[in-house]
Protein backbone atom coordinates (compact mmCIF):
# COMPACT_ATOMS: atom_id res chain seq x y z
CA UNK A 1 0.00 0.00 0.00
CA UNK A 2 2.81 2.32 0.92
CA UNK A 3 4.26 1.70 -2.56
CA UNK A 4 1.13 3.11 -4.23
CA UNK A 5 0.75 6.00 -1.85
CA UNK A 6 2.74 8.45 -3.96
CA UNK A 7 0.63 7.60 -7.05
CA UNK A 8 -2.60 8.09 -5.14
CA UNK A 9 -1.26 11.38 -3.86
CA UNK A 10 -0.30 12.42 -7.37
CA UNK A 11 -3.81 11.67 -8.61
CA UNK A 12 -5.33 13.52 -5.71
CA UNK A 13 -3.33 16.55 -6.68
CA UNK A 14 -4.16 16.35 -10.36
CA UNK A 15 -7.88 15.56 -10.34
CA UNK A 16 -9.14 18.62 -8.45
CA UNK A 17 -6.70 20.91 -10.22
CA UNK A 18 -8.25 19.98 -13.57
CA UNK A 19 -11.83 19.57 -12.49
CA UNK A 20 -12.21 22.86 -10.64
CA UNK A 21 -11.73 25.25 -13.60
CA UNK A 22 -13.75 22.96 -15.81
CA UNK A 23 -16.53 23.13 -13.27
CA UNK A 24 -16.43 26.93 -13.39
CA UNK A 25 -16.52 26.88 -17.17
CA UNK A 26 -19.40 24.42 -17.08
CA UNK A 27 -21.29 26.79 -14.75
CA UNK A 28 -20.55 29.70 -17.05
CA UNK A 29 -21.79 27.68 -20.01
CA UNK A 30 -25.03 26.87 -18.17
CA UNK A 31 -25.41 30.51 -17.17
CA UNK A 32 -24.94 31.68 -20.77
CA UNK A 33 -27.32 29.02 -22.02
CA UNK A 34 -29.91 30.14 -19.49
CA UNK A 35 -29.65 33.67 -20.88
CA UNK A 36 -30.06 32.32 -24.41
CA UNK A 37 -33.04 30.18 -23.48
CA UNK A 38 -34.75 33.11 -21.78
CA UNK A 39 -34.26 35.12 -25.01
CA UNK A 40 -31.87 37.61 -23.40
CA UNK A 41 -29.72 37.50 -26.48
CA UNK A 42 -27.48 40.49 -25.73
CA UNK A 43 -26.54 39.02 -22.36
CA UNK A 44 -26.23 35.55 -23.87
CA UNK A 45 -23.66 36.85 -26.36
CA UNK A 46 -21.71 38.57 -23.57
CA UNK A 47 -21.68 35.46 -21.41
CA UNK A 48 -20.72 33.13 -24.26
CA UNK A 49 -17.95 35.54 -25.20
CA UNK A 50 -16.79 35.51 -21.59
CA UNK A 51 -16.81 31.73 -21.67
CA UNK A 52 -14.76 31.71 -24.86
CA UNK A 53 -12.29 34.20 -23.40
CA UNK A 54 -11.60 32.08 -20.32
CA UNK A 55 -11.87 28.72 -22.03
CA UNK A 56 -8.14 28.14 -22.50
CA UNK A 57 -8.71 24.48 -23.37
CA UNK A 58 -11.20 25.43 -26.12
CA UNK A 59 -13.67 22.90 -24.81
CA UNK A 60 -16.65 25.14 -25.56
CA UNK A 61 -15.36 26.78 -28.70
CA UNK A 62 -17.91 25.12 -31.00
CA UNK A 63 -20.98 25.46 -28.77
CA UNK A 64 -20.25 28.98 -27.63
CA UNK A 65 -19.68 30.25 -31.16
CA UNK A 66 -22.78 28.45 -32.38
CA UNK A 67 -24.89 30.07 -29.66
CA UNK A 68 -23.35 33.49 -30.26
CA UNK A 69 -24.30 33.07 -33.91
CA UNK A 70 -27.84 32.03 -32.98
CA UNK A 71 -28.16 35.01 -30.64
CA UNK A 72 -27.00 37.43 -33.30
CA UNK A 73 -29.41 35.80 -35.73
CA UNK A 74 -32.26 36.25 -33.26
CA UNK A 75 -31.36 39.96 -33.18
CA UNK A 76 -31.43 40.03 -37.01
CA UNK A 77 -27.67 40.68 -37.16
CA UNK A 78 -27.17 38.11 -39.85
CA UNK A 79 -23.66 39.07 -40.95
CA UNK A 80 -22.39 38.85 -37.37
CA UNK A 81 -24.25 35.55 -37.01
CA UNK A 82 -22.55 34.14 -40.11
CA UNK A 83 -19.15 35.19 -38.75
CA UNK A 84 -19.68 33.20 -35.55
CA UNK A 85 -21.24 30.21 -37.32
CA UNK A 86 -18.15 30.15 -39.51
CA UNK A 87 -15.89 30.08 -36.43
CA UNK A 88 -18.06 27.25 -35.09
CA UNK A 89 -17.71 25.45 -38.43
CA UNK A 90 -13.92 25.75 -38.28
CA UNK A 91 -13.96 24.28 -34.77
CA UNK A 92 -16.52 21.55 -35.41
CA UNK A 93 -15.49 18.30 -33.76
CA UNK A 94 -17.43 15.90 -35.95
CA UNK A 95 -19.51 15.71 -39.13
CA UNK A 96 -22.76 16.38 -37.30
CA UNK A 97 -21.42 19.64 -35.85
CA UNK A 98 -19.92 20.55 -39.20
CA UNK A 99 -23.23 19.98 -40.95
CA UNK A 100 -25.19 21.93 -38.33
CA UNK A 101 -22.91 24.94 -38.51
CA UNK A 102 -23.00 24.94 -42.30
CA UNK A 103 -26.80 24.73 -42.27
CA UNK A 104 -26.93 27.65 -39.83
CA UNK A 105 -24.79 29.67 -42.24
CA UNK A 106 -27.21 28.78 -45.04
CA UNK A 107 -30.23 29.72 -42.93
CA UNK A 108 -28.69 33.09 -42.06
CA UNK A 109 -27.94 33.67 -45.74
CA UNK A 110 -31.56 32.87 -46.61
CA UNK A 111 -32.80 35.40 -44.06
CA UNK A 112 -30.23 37.94 -45.23
CA UNK A 113 -31.60 37.35 -48.74
CA UNK A 114 -28.17 36.50 -50.09
CA UNK A 115 -29.87 33.63 -51.86
CA UNK A 116 -27.09 33.03 -54.39
CA UNK A 117 -24.66 32.40 -51.53
CA UNK A 118 -27.15 30.08 -49.78
CA UNK A 119 -27.65 28.09 -52.97
CA UNK A 120 -23.90 27.84 -53.60
CA UNK A 121 -23.38 26.51 -50.07
CA UNK A 122 -26.24 24.03 -50.57
CA UNK A 123 -24.64 22.86 -53.83
CA UNK A 124 -21.34 22.32 -52.00
CA UNK A 125 -23.02 20.32 -49.26
CA UNK A 126 -24.99 18.30 -51.78
CA UNK A 127 -21.83 17.25 -53.57
CA UNK A 128 -20.12 16.33 -50.27
CA UNK A 129 -20.26 12.56 -49.80
CA UNK A 130 -20.15 12.88 -46.01
CA UNK A 131 -23.66 14.34 -46.07
CA UNK A 132 -25.27 11.97 -48.53
CA UNK A 133 -27.87 10.97 -45.93
CA UNK A 134 -28.90 14.61 -45.44
CA UNK A 135 -30.23 15.17 -48.95
CA UNK A 136 -33.78 15.69 -47.67
CA UNK A 137 -32.59 18.48 -45.34
CA UNK A 138 -30.67 20.11 -48.15
CA UNK A 139 -33.69 20.11 -50.48
CA UNK A 140 -35.79 21.50 -47.64
CA UNK A 141 -33.49 24.48 -47.10
CA UNK A 142 -33.15 24.93 -50.85
CA UNK A 143 -36.93 25.28 -50.93
CA UNK A 144 -36.77 28.01 -48.31
CA UNK A 145 -33.98 29.77 -50.20
CA UNK A 146 -36.24 29.89 -53.26
CA UNK A 147 -39.18 31.13 -51.18
CA UNK A 148 -37.13 34.05 -49.91
CA UNK A 149 -36.01 34.87 -53.43
CA UNK A 150 -39.66 34.80 -54.57
CA UNK A 151 -39.26 31.75 -56.83
CA UNK A 152 -42.25 29.77 -55.60
CA UNK A 153 -42.28 27.29 -58.49
CA UNK A 154 -38.67 26.27 -57.83
CA UNK A 155 -39.46 26.14 -54.10
CA UNK A 156 -42.32 23.71 -54.81
CA UNK A 157 -39.96 21.53 -56.87
CA UNK A 158 -37.38 21.48 -54.05
CA UNK A 159 -39.92 20.62 -51.36
CA UNK A 160 -41.21 17.90 -53.65
CA UNK A 161 -37.78 16.23 -53.40
CA UNK A 162 -38.20 15.82 -49.65
CA UNK A 163 -40.39 13.08 -48.24
CA UNK A 164 -42.23 14.98 -45.56
CA UNK A 165 -43.17 18.39 -46.90
CA UNK A 166 -46.05 17.85 -49.29
CA UNK A 167 -48.05 20.63 -47.60
CA UNK A 168 -45.24 23.04 -48.47
CA UNK A 169 -45.33 21.80 -52.06
CA UNK A 170 -49.03 22.61 -52.30
CA UNK A 171 -48.62 25.91 -50.53
CA UNK A 172 -45.84 27.05 -52.89
CA UNK A 173 -47.80 25.93 -55.94
CA UNK A 174 -50.83 27.92 -54.75
CA UNK A 175 -48.78 31.05 -54.22
CA UNK A 176 -47.25 30.68 -57.67
CA UNK A 177 -50.73 30.21 -59.11
CA UNK A 178 -52.07 33.31 -57.32
CA UNK A 179 -49.33 35.57 -58.64
CA UNK A 180 -49.96 37.78 -61.67
CA UNK A 181 -47.97 37.28 -64.84
CA UNK A 182 -45.67 40.20 -65.62
CA UNK A 183 -45.23 39.31 -69.34
CA UNK A 184 -49.01 38.90 -69.81
CA UNK A 185 -49.74 42.31 -68.24
CA UNK A 186 -47.09 43.95 -70.43
CA UNK A 187 -48.28 42.28 -73.64
CA UNK A 188 -51.99 43.10 -73.20
CA UNK A 189 -51.06 46.68 -72.29
CA UNK A 190 -49.22 46.98 -75.60
CA UNK A 191 -52.41 46.12 -77.50
CA UNK A 192 -55.08 47.63 -75.24
CA UNK A 193 -53.75 50.47 -73.08
CA UNK A 194 -55.06 50.08 -69.53
CA UNK A 195 -55.69 46.33 -69.86
CA UNK A 196 -52.66 45.53 -67.64
CA UNK A 197 -54.07 47.71 -64.86
CA UNK A 198 -57.54 46.14 -65.24
CA UNK A 199 -55.91 42.67 -65.11
CA UNK A 200 -54.47 43.47 -61.68
CA UNK A 201 -57.78 44.88 -60.42
CA UNK A 202 -56.94 48.59 -60.76
CA UNK A 203 -60.05 49.36 -62.81
CA UNK A 204 -60.15 53.15 -62.40
CA UNK A 205 -56.52 53.54 -63.39
CA UNK A 206 -57.05 51.17 -66.34
CA UNK A 207 -60.08 53.06 -67.68
CA UNK A 208 -58.30 56.40 -67.19
CA UNK A 209 -55.28 55.14 -69.09
CA UNK A 210 -57.49 53.85 -71.89
CA UNK A 211 -59.30 57.23 -72.04
CA UNK A 212 -56.12 59.33 -72.27
CA UNK A 213 -54.62 57.06 -74.89
CA UNK A 214 -57.82 57.13 -76.94
CA UNK A 215 -58.01 60.94 -76.78
CA UNK A 216 -54.37 61.60 -77.75
CA UNK A 217 -54.39 58.75 -80.23
CA UNK A 218 -57.50 60.18 -81.88
CA UNK A 219 -56.00 63.70 -82.03
CA UNK A 220 -52.75 62.36 -83.48
CA UNK A 221 -54.49 60.29 -86.15
CA UNK A 222 -56.90 63.14 -86.92
CA UNK A 223 -53.98 65.52 -87.42
CA UNK A 224 -52.35 63.16 -89.89
CA UNK A 225 -55.70 62.62 -91.69
CA UNK A 226 -56.15 66.42 -91.92
CA UNK A 227 -52.63 66.70 -93.37
CA UNK A 228 -51.38 68.57 -90.30
CA UNK A 229 -48.24 66.41 -90.14
CA UNK A 230 -46.32 68.58 -87.65
CA UNK A 231 -49.34 68.67 -85.29
CA UNK A 232 -49.56 64.89 -85.57
CA UNK A 233 -45.87 64.37 -84.83
CA UNK A 234 -45.88 66.69 -81.84
CA UNK A 235 -49.15 65.38 -80.36
CA UNK A 236 -48.05 61.81 -80.99
CA UNK A 237 -44.59 62.26 -79.47
CA UNK A 238 -45.29 64.61 -76.62
CA UNK A 239 -48.68 63.36 -75.53
CA UNK A 240 -49.77 60.04 -76.93
CA UNK A 241 -46.40 58.27 -76.60
CA UNK A 242 -45.98 59.63 -73.06
CA UNK A 243 -49.37 58.27 -71.99
CA UNK A 244 -48.73 55.04 -73.86
CA UNK A 245 -45.38 54.55 -72.11
CA UNK A 246 -46.96 55.52 -68.81
CA UNK A 247 -49.58 52.83 -69.35
CA UNK A 248 -46.86 50.19 -69.90
CA UNK A 249 -44.90 51.33 -66.86
CA UNK A 250 -48.06 51.41 -64.74
CA UNK A 251 -49.04 47.89 -65.76
CA UNK A 252 -45.56 46.64 -64.81
CA UNK A 253 -45.64 48.54 -61.51
CA UNK A 254 -49.10 47.28 -60.51
CA UNK A 255 -48.26 43.65 -61.29
CA UNK A 256 -45.09 43.88 -59.20
CA UNK A 257 -46.95 45.57 -56.33
CA UNK A 258 -49.72 42.97 -56.34
CA UNK A 259 -47.21 40.12 -56.52
CA UNK A 260 -45.31 41.63 -53.61
CA UNK A 261 -48.53 41.71 -51.59
CA UNK A 262 -49.18 38.03 -52.40
CA UNK A 263 -45.59 37.11 -51.46
CA UNK A 264 -45.73 39.09 -48.22
CA UNK A 265 -49.04 37.50 -47.25
CA UNK A 266 -47.58 34.07 -47.94
CA UNK A 267 -44.46 34.83 -45.87
CA UNK A 268 -46.66 36.24 -43.13
CA UNK A 269 -48.65 33.02 -43.07
CA UNK A 270 -45.48 30.91 -43.01
CA UNK A 271 -44.11 32.95 -40.12
CA UNK A 272 -47.15 32.45 -37.89
CA UNK A 273 -49.07 29.52 -39.33
CA UNK A 274 -46.35 27.09 -40.36
CA UNK A 275 -44.99 24.95 -37.54
CA UNK A 276 -42.10 23.21 -39.25
CA UNK A 277 -38.47 24.36 -39.22
CA UNK A 278 -37.99 27.86 -40.56
CA UNK A 279 -34.79 29.73 -41.50
Amino acid sequence: MKRYFKYILFLLILIPSYSLPQDILQKQYSYALEKYNSEQYYDAITEFKRLLFFDGGKKYVYDANEYIGLSYKAGAKFSDAILYFTIAEINAGNNEELFNSKIEIIRANILRRTTARALTLLDTLQSDKRFISKKGDLYYWRGWAYIFSDQWDKAAQSFNMTDTNKTMVEFCKNVQHEKYSVPFAEIVSHFIPGAGQIYTGHYFSGVLSLGWNTLWGYLTVKSFVDDRIFDGLVTGNLLWLRFYNGNLQNADKFVKEENLKITNNALDYLQSGYHGLKP
Binding site: L9, Y18, I24
Partner: peptide
Protein backbone atom coordinates in the same frame (compact mmCIF):
# COMPACT_ATOMS: atom_id res chain seq x y z
CA UNK B 1 3.11 18.41 4.09
CA UNK B 2 0.98 16.33 1.73
CA UNK B 3 -2.14 18.25 2.62
CA UNK B 4 -0.38 21.55 2.00
CA UNK B 5 0.94 20.36 -1.36
CA UNK B 6 -2.51 19.15 -2.28
CA UNK B 7 -4.18 22.45 -1.43
CA UNK B 8 -1.55 24.71 -3.00
CA UNK B 9 -1.19 22.70 -6.16
CA UNK B 10 -4.95 22.71 -6.63
CA UNK B 11 -5.08 26.48 -6.42
CA UNK B 12 -1.98 27.03 -8.56
CA UNK B 13 -3.03 24.57 -11.26
CA UNK B 14 -6.53 25.85 -11.43
CA UNK B 15 -5.26 29.43 -11.82
CA UNK B 16 -2.97 28.40 -14.61
CA UNK B 17 -5.69 26.51 -16.41
CA UNK B 18 -8.11 29.32 -16.05
CA UNK B 19 -5.65 31.80 -17.50
CA UNK B 20 -6.29 35.27 -16.09
CA UNK B 21 -6.51 35.85 -12.38
CA UNK B 22 -8.46 33.56 -10.14
CA UNK B 23 -11.25 31.05 -10.55
CA UNK B 24 -14.13 33.50 -10.32
CA UNK B 25 -14.87 34.73 -13.83
Amino acid sequence: LFTLILVFSTVIYSQEKNQPGNNDL
